[in-house]
Design a protein around this nucleic acid. Structure first.
Lengths: 240, 240
DNA sequence: CTTTGCATCTCGACT
DNA sequence: AGTCGAGGTGCAAAG
């Protein structure tokens, strides 16, 4: 761990260059402007921001508000630090697609380099996979007599989350969402049901069921128009 | 700007509490575990991470890799810092929905508080709005004789990006995407065209045109199946 | 407040 | 490398 406060431009540039090549996670707090050009293009006038450079090549520019960085560069970028007109310039570049992020510091208040390791993986519950497992473990949650036959069943339009048959043997396509659904989920289920209808024989009927904790009004109307169904179910049994 | 390296737990807790209440942006680098419970739930074992707490109540937990925080809490959270068993515990809480993030530090290597202002807004070009403006300024880019009549025209299924008529007066619904499109965009356009067909008189024909820099194979097939069209166009004229 | 759709979405999984 | 869909998506605009 290494820290500098109010470093001179030359010192700052040297600090960032050397610690980055040592594999440090570097943070810079200072007054800067930011330019980006690549998939889109953006400009940001001068302000006080926190810049984070990770050893994997990620760059983040954070303002004092909001969860998202105001500007960023994805992992795999190469960095270049230079002093121009007494200002520290940070360039973060990658190719495919060609993208450049440039941060120009008027002043740097604080500079830190930290070294560490992180072996642990995040484990999450309450995902769509948990909802799927819940239904597979107890298919009658969907409806009495439902029999799952496959997950991620391929169609020309994409993979169906759960594929099965109802009590009387009718084919059923199930689309799962871990949270309240809107119109997009209806479109997704509709694509799968349509594709399935084309792939099976023309006389085969296919039911489509959207499973989620809840549904918006517009989505419910779209579902009805297309003859599709909704079943309320959450990933977490406690939330039903 | 204020910095502490290897602070004692009591000192760290006091530092974070006071600087946060002063409106500082606080960063903590140290070895910690993270727990989250709310919309989902997650656990993360011990590792070295950078924690950023913004004056607007945002909390971010960053590992040494990846652009996205491994855990986070959105703006508007309230924070609580305490020392338990010689460890600094950070709680970040909000309601609607009820969510809690808990970071437990085994050790804290570095602690910083920074104060700043950021008045400037980010300006971006190359967005969907730019693509829309390009077409409105020169409708023949879409096709010869196209006449835009409205943007964001409401239907029961949602708003159509550009609504207009072709050379012979047939109604046209245009869906815009700033980048290469997949199946989801086809579903979106299809919803709008279907809704428009129902709202206008039954005998009215409606064309649907998807506008984007490019399109995937599967999306092209879905488009064709539904009798919809594609026009290649980018937000930036230089990219056509 | 909820709903809706964009985003330099990011990310992982699969081809 | 490209495609596809999930995500604790975040976010702003509009009702």
């Amino acid at each position: 761990v290494d820290v500098r406060t109010n470093p001179a431009p030359d010192e700052a540039a040297h600090f960032v260059t050397t610690t980055l090549s040592d594999g440090a996670l570097v943070t810079i707090f200072g007054r800067c402007t930011v330019e980006y050009s690549g998939r889109a293009a953006s400009e940001l006038g001068a302000g006080d921001r926190l810049v984070v450079i990770k050893p994997d090549g990620t760059t983040l520019v954070h303002t004092d508000a909001g969860q998202q960085p105001v500007n960023w560069q994805p992992p795999g970028c190469t960095h270049d630090v230079a002093v121009v007109d007494d200002q520290v310039h940070l360039d973060s570049t990658r190719s495919n697609p060609d993208e450049t992020l440039t941060v120009r510091f008027e002043t740097i208040a604080q500079l830190t380099a930290a070294y560490g390791t992180d072996e642990k993986a995040l484990s999450v519950t309450g995902t769509e996979a948990d909802l799927r497992d819940r239904i597979l473990a107890n298919p009658s949650l969907l409806e009495e007599g439902f029999q799952p036959l496959a997950t991620e069943r391929r169609t020309a339009a994409g993979a169906i989350d759960v594929y099965g048959e109802d009590e009387v043997g009718t084919t059923v396509a199930v689309e799962l969402k871990r949270r309240r659904v809107g119109p997009d989920a209806v479109g997704q289920l509709d694509r799968y049901v349509t594709a399935l209808g084309r792939e099976l024989h023309a006389d085969v009927d296919v039911r489509g069921i959207l499973v989620a904790p809840s549904i918006t009004d517009r989505a419910r109307h779209l579902l009805a128009e297309r003859g599709l169904e909704f079943v309320a179910l959450s990933p977490d049994p406690a939330d039903d």
